[in-house]
Structures are given as structure tokens and as C-alpha cells.
């Protein structure tokens, strides 16, 4: 098959992995804009959420919620419920982590904070491995038939359509949240001018709390969706995506959640389409190249504000 005819299919794969990167990137971007540091543990928040959902599945089955697949999808209501609960539980874990660690370092230098997130990343990944083991685990093993869309020359599985729809829904929800809710406006204000936000009577700690909750919830969904797309989860699930996520966030303009969404899609699509031209083995290098080019040409990112 010639190279060009494969492009539509690769674009589709890129869109799907881009959706997952976007959901991960939003959290990194929000953390950076509100707390002012790069969170290298964010990938491991994704893995944590994915594993908590896995652990909840038996409990949900015990409650009597059927594990039957939802229509053509490979998973059922039980999985959806597990992911929603996992989002809450991982948010609670992350908020606890903030209270115990990051809050003590609020006025520390951003490099100190960044290094402490690397420590958290290592600790969390090893904790996950300690509890659930290093071997890959699966949510469900139902086989799915891909849908052929001849006109576009692509094949796509129902699960993958679900991933795209979830990402679209959550991105829209985030937009409405930031634009129209009081706490969303407080988050944008704090990101723009933290001291003036305090002068307006905004409680910074409340904004930080919501930043972690949103970041950890979206990370959980991203991790669980990655588990659906890859058919398995491992403790390295998020760490492996972290470079692509950072490339996405910087590409879009670090600190701008909309930029993270755009950046995620661009990086996801670039990585997949690159395989038409270069060996698949070089896929991780694509994110690196994007990252470096962006830092050289336009360090503020595509949607970044000029300072």
C-alpha cells in the first residue's frame, strides 16, 4: 500500500491518541498556570486513576451492576461508573498529596517544586507497581470489529469513536466551566494575576483545590481511555506519555488549557502520521522534535500570550 493512501487511517489514529494526550495535557497546563510549576507526576496521576478504576470493577460487580457491554462497545456501565468513581478517588489522593507535600512548598522556588514532582512521580509509579504488579492488566477482553468508512478510507472501532466523543464532551465542559462558573472565573483570574485575584477576595487555596480536582479527574479519564485504546494498562502508562504531553502543552502555550487541547491533537496526529515516512521506532522522537522546534521558534506556544 502506498504511503499517501495510509494517511487518512493514520490521521484517525492520531486523532484518537491526540484526544488522550489533550485530556492529560489540560491538567499539566492548569497546574502550571495556577501553581506555577511543571508537574512531572501528572502521567502517574493518569496511571493511578486507571488502576483505581480497575480495582473498583469487582466492587461494582458485587453491587450488582451488570458487566454487559454497552452496545458495540467493549465495556459496560460498570466501567463507566468505575472511571467516574476513580476520578473522585484519585482527586482525593491528589488533594491529600497537595496538603501533605506541595502546600508545604507553596513559596519555594519553582525548580524545587518541579524536582519534588519528579520524586512524587517515582514514588507513585512504584506504589502502583507494588500494589498491582508490573504485568499488564486489562479492563475487558471483548473483541471489537472495526467499522469501515469507505468514503474516508478509514477503519475505526466503536471504542475509538467513544474516546473521541468523551474528549470532545470534556473539552466543551471545561470551556463552559472556565467561562461561566464562579470558580472557573476565579481560576482564570488567578492564572492571569494571582495577587490581584487575592485583592478581589478570591481564596487562592480554593482555586488550587479545584485545579487539582480537575487535573486529576481528567488524568483519570485519560488513563482509563488509554487502557481501552491499548487494551491493557501498566504502571508506566502515564510516564510513557509524559514527553508527548509536555510537547503538547508547550506547543499550545504552557498555562493555556485550550492550547493543551490543540497541542495534544497536533502531537498525537504528528506522531502517527510520521510512521508513514519513518520507522515506528522513531515515534517518541517526534514529540521531542516538536518540543525543541517550538522552544526555538515560538517559546510562548501557538496560543500563548505574548508577554
Amino acid at each position: 500500500m502506498d504511503v499517501l493512501s495510509r494517511i487518512p487511517q493514520l490521521l484517525t489514529y492520531g486523532l484518537i491518541s491526540g484526544c488522550i494526550l489533550s485530556l492529560g495535557g489540560i491538567g499539566v497546563s492548569l497546574t502550571y498556570s495556577i501553581l506555577g510549576f511543571s508537574n512531572f507526576a501528572h502521567g502517574d496521576f493518569m496511571a493511578l486513576g486507571a488502576y483505581i478504576a480497575l480495582a473498583l470493577l469487582p466492587a461494582i460487580a458485587w453491587l450488582g451492576i451488570p458487566a454487559a457491554s454497552l452496545g458495540p462497545l467493549s465495556f459496560g456501565w460498570d466501567w463507566i461508573l468505575a472511571v467516574l468513581l476513580a476520578a473522585m478517588l484519585s482527586s482525593a489522593c491528589v488533594v491529600l498529596l497537595d496538603r501533605l507535600l506541595f502546600r508545604q512548598l507553596r513559596s519555594a522556588h519553582r525548580i524545587t517544586l518541579m524536582i519534588s514532582t519528579v520524586g512524587v512521580a517515582l514514588a507513585l509509579r512504584n506504589l502502583i507497581q507494588f500494589i498491582w504488579g508490573p504485568q499488564p492488566q486489562t479492563y475487558a477482553s471483548a473483541i471489537q470489529k472495526a467499522i469501515r468508512i469507505e468514503r474516508l478510507g478509514i477503519r475505526i472501532k466503536p471504542d475509538q469513536i467513544f474516546i473521541i466523543l468523551v474528549a470532545l464532551t470534556l473539552a466543551t465542559a471545561l470551556h463552559l466551566f472556565l467561562r461561566y462558573t464562579k470558580i472557573g472565573k476565579a481560576m482564570r483570574a488567578t492564572s492571569d494575576n494571582p495577587s490581584l485575584a487575592r485583592v478581589c477576595g478570591i481564596k487562592t487555596e480554593r482555586v488550587i483545590l479545584w485545579t487539582w480536582i480537575i487535573g486529576a479527574s481528567l488524568a483519570t479519564v485519560a488513563g482509563a481511555l488509554a487502557g481501552i485504546e491499548n487494551k491493557f494498562i501498566t504502571p508506566e502508562l502515564g510516564w510513557q506519555m509524559l514527553l508527548s504531553i509536555f510537547a503538547a502543552v508547550i506547543l499550545g502555550g504552557i498555562g493555556n488549557p485550550y492550547g493543551a487541547i490543540v497541542g495534544g491533537l497536533v502531537v498525537g496526529i504528528s506522531e502517527e502520521v510520521s510512521t508513514a515516512f519513518i520507522s515506528t521506532g522513531y515515534k517518541p522522537a517526534v514529540a521531542f522534535v516538536i518540543l525543541i522546534l517550538m522552544l526555538l521558534i515560538r517559546p510562548t506556544g501557538l496560543l500563548g500570550r505574548k508577554s
Binding site: K185, D192, L196, R305
Partner: peptide, 13 residues
């Protein structure tokens, strides 16, 4: 001021 927000949003805050 909040430079990346609109006049209305600044006042609202």
C-alpha cells in the same frame, strides 16, 4: 488589572 480578561470580566471579578 487582569490583562487577558475582558473589561466586563475584570469588573465582575
Amino acid at each position: 488589572v487582569f490583562p487577558s480578561l475582558t473589561v466586563r470580566e475584570n469588573l465582575e471579578l
